[in-house]
Design a protein around this nucleic acid. Sequence first.
DNA 1: GTGAAAGCGCTAACAG
DNA 2: CTGTTAGCGCTTTCAC
Lengths: 344, 344
Amino acid sequence: MGKKVTIYDLAEKLKVSPATVSRALNDHPSISRKTKERILSVAKELGYRTNKFAVNLSKQKSNTIGVIVPRLNSNFMSTVLAGIEKVANEIGYNLIISQSLESAEKEVLNAKTLYDSGVDALMVSLAYSTEDFDHLTAFTERKIPLLFFDRVSDLPNCPTILIDNRAAGYDATEHLIQQGCKNILHIAGSLKRNVYSERFEGYKNALGQYGLPFEKANLLEVTLDLSQVPEIVEHIKKSKSRIDGIFVANDTFAVHCMKELKKEGYRIPEDIKVIGFNNDPVSEVISPDLSTIDYPGYKMGVLAGQSIIGHLNGSINLQSANQITLRHSLIVRESTLNTENKTE
Amino acid sequence: MGKKVTIYDLAEKLKVSPATVSRALNDHPSISRKTKERILSVAKELGYRTNKFAVNLSKQKSNTIGVIVPRLNSNFMSTVLAGIEKVANEIGYNLIISQSLESAEKEVLNAKTLYDSGVDALMVSLAYSTEDFDHLTAFTERKIPLLFFDRVSDLPNCPTILIDNRAAGYDATEHLIQQGCKNILHIAGSLKRNVYSERFEGYKNALGQYGLPFEKANLLEVTLDLSQVPEIVEHIKKSKSRIDGIFVANDTFAVHCMKELKKEGYRIPEDIKVIGFNNDPVSEVISPDLSTIDYPGYKMGVLAGQSIIGHLNGSINLQSANQITLRHSLIVRESTLNTENKTE
DNA sequence: GTGAAAGCGCTAACAG
DNA sequence: CTGTTAGCGCTTTCAC
């Protein structure tokens, strides 16, 4: 592999113009089959490799998609990313991935960097603390496709892809109610984010629907950091009216609550039933295994990728903000088993 | 935010040359404090944003690091990536992440793409099926730093970062032996990859050290796909001499084996002891909780990032191929508890 | 301390 | 079907 072969080298060697070489290399229709072949063969022979820097500058695009996620290392997010990467990779786009670590400031910085890097599109799932979206409107103003997934915003004209969190929250809560729970605790993440606020709404709606009162004390808004598990359990122990069901906004946290509750002598599902969210691998490993809401992360990634690529190719009209809602589903396992017959 | 402000616009407005503007923007020493300030202020005022495409072309570098991993969506890998991203992000490098999906062909393709994209450095963790490394030598030939982590190669002059898999395999096996196991099964991944072959070696060494014979039938080389769990369990049930210990090359697989074994009536650790590898979150969730080897993934990512950046900055000599070995540690939990006193 | 000018390698409008 | 000619926006010698 030699050093730096350019289209000029090829042009010179073949006694044609650089333009012709460029066209041949890009399979331009108006180049004779013959010269195309000659050029291609010499290119291969000399080990020519196209210089993306030059292409990018000339075309003002980079064949690159930027992604900002709260964090890479959660099962759900890495699964989504795997889906995105797969489709991006297949059609030859590179993926620049950055994490906001749930910090709005970092999200802003990342957005700036990606903007300056000249990404052709941006996909984001918002940080906990993000409140305004100026760092993102810069993209839409420049007509750079901007897509939200999972943790979305209400920015106009931006495709979003998510599940119906309200319905999912409703389903989870309804299930607990149907299994006999009367006093259900809900453990939520930051209510600034749609995913948590809507799950909470679903929870409230279900309570209302079944004639159960919503107690303020039964909503715990936390960061879902595992270090908070003990205080949650403490809360449950101290609760005036006995809590007999918990709807947790994610499986990991749910599972660790279960562990702690079991240590404290609670029997699940006899004393207290638990349902999580996400269908994380841990939900199948805990004992009793955890009822949950299946969240199709990989599919979400794939669809997000396809959607953004559609916009990039102009095959979808960016103006008509479209929203894709994926189907979730309730997964019933042992942690919410109705044991009334046995325990009564 | 206006449209496309270039250094020429600034130059014109300020009656200076583009060169001066460029220097000022890059904080070049030979520009007077005064003009520097003027330029900077006008730049801000006009909303100037540097065009990376032009910079890249001019400098022939991209401020971008490529990463190829087998897959994004494993807890271990996403944790490593989180570490890499953190340090890359901090010093202003972008990360292009791609997955080989354990396929050598895809790895080759990804390498080509990243090469053409002009990444300044490449970090890779090899696919199962990769056998030769021509797709990677292209990088070293062009003096592009190439680093391996976790699944490494023996390519000369490439920094690698890993743990001592042989010692870790030894430790795991030794632990089982010390807990009274006499007939230990080892479930390995592709023995083409250092991580698995060396864990296997460690296993064999430990057996030898303790005077236990190594039975070929006790080595199972699998893809570690969960669909293989049933056949593993079948193997255990059918084994001539009763298997009393299993050393599994990763926790996820170990955990699912445990579930299946429990279903089949095996008591863990009484009938059979199990130890995994990675200290994956699931290892703490299964019951009995799983003994394992702690694998510092995040730290590995951080160090890998720092190492490659050191090379990029020239602060480390690329020629002196260095190898960083991280410390692993045995984590003893219930799944390997010696219950002899109780059961005898 | 600042300017002029030559690239960096490729693309694309316009001619022929 | 092919060549000419400007860019794309920034960096960087080499002068002054």
